[in-house]
Amino acid sequence: MHAQLTLAQLPIGSAAFIHSLPTGRVGLTRLRELGLTPGARVTMVRRAPLGEPIEITVRGSHIAMRDHEAQHIGITHVEQAFNPAQSTTTQA
């Protein structure tokens, strides 16, 4: 069996479903309250110019967090999603 894939490893432009978050950790509870609950669909939008933090979208809102948090968030069903950023790149 593969090691659990985490949100920190999700390629830019791809989407996945949240599989698990460890319970009982203050920072992760706040991320849950912002919509990152198991089963929610997340898309990796970008990484900051210096590599961190990451920007993701979940339930229509855009949230930035560091790898330190993202690497605790397990994901499944990674799909290569349509990426609006890429389409503008090809035009440019």
């Binding site: 920072g27 991320l31 933090p53 949230i63």
Partner: peptide, 8 residues
């Protein structure tokens, strides 16, 4: 506290 930032 973890850095969590909303991008409005």
């Amino acid at each position: 506290a973890p850095m969590i930032l909303e991008m409005p």
